[in-house]
Amino acid sequence: MSEPAPRPRHRGQVMVAVGVAMLATLILIMILGPSIAPYSPSATSPNSLDGPTAAHWLGTDSIGRDLLSRLIVGGRGTLTITFVAVALALTAGLILGLTSGYIGGKVDLIIMRLLDVVFAFPVFLLAIAVVAALGPTVKNLILTIAIVYTPAMARVVRAPVLSIKRWDHVEAARSVGVGEFAIALRHVLPMAISPILVQTSLILANTIFTVTALSFLGLGPPPPDPNWGSMLAEARQFMELAPLTVIGPAVAIVFASLTFIVLANGLREMLDVGSR
């Protein structure tokens, strides 16, 4: 009737391997950054708005800066904001989700209702409002993104904790006198790690979107630092003169989000996490 499909677990491993390779590429570019860029990202040249040439593989921008170099260095900025923001959201989500799920009762109710309020805002709208209020600096951008993704993170941590805390091994640990804090951290949290990993990966992809979208709207890190979002916005502005300059930032943004989506899908199948 249907051709045999590869087993999900195996398919998941392949996807995770691909995702990890893509992630390694991103991180390598992020670390090496300026040292592998062919030019300085701020060095101007008289050849402005050139298409791809042998000297400038991706072309040049409106004041003759090399787009490939700006893309490489800009990746560092975009990815740093992404990773730091998600790390913050993850930490906050872990603390809130674990506290809420493990202690339960009134504490759970209060924390979850408070997070519901943040959850009620459309993420991107809230991000714009917060950045608008705080001002578009790297620090504020990180803070904003951490805030808007904390509720999602906390929910993902809380759900499995609610059931795991009733498992036998938790009771066993308690009976031999392990402290509640240690139980939560060592006996409950490790069991909940699979869905957290998948969700973190998905949120990383979403964050790439939010960071680049904010920069695209001019609410990203202030110039002259290059950034994928603002590069795309600029390329769009001069589209009629140099249409191909759109390609670089567009591909970079897609590659980065794809990395985390492939990772998330692969992890989901490999670790056998329900899709929702």
Binding site: A205, T212, V246, V254, I261
Partner: peptide
Amino acid sequence: LLLAVPNFVIAT
């Protein structure tokens, strides 16, 4: 792939 291409990139 569609999930990886943000709407503003598609629009652009």
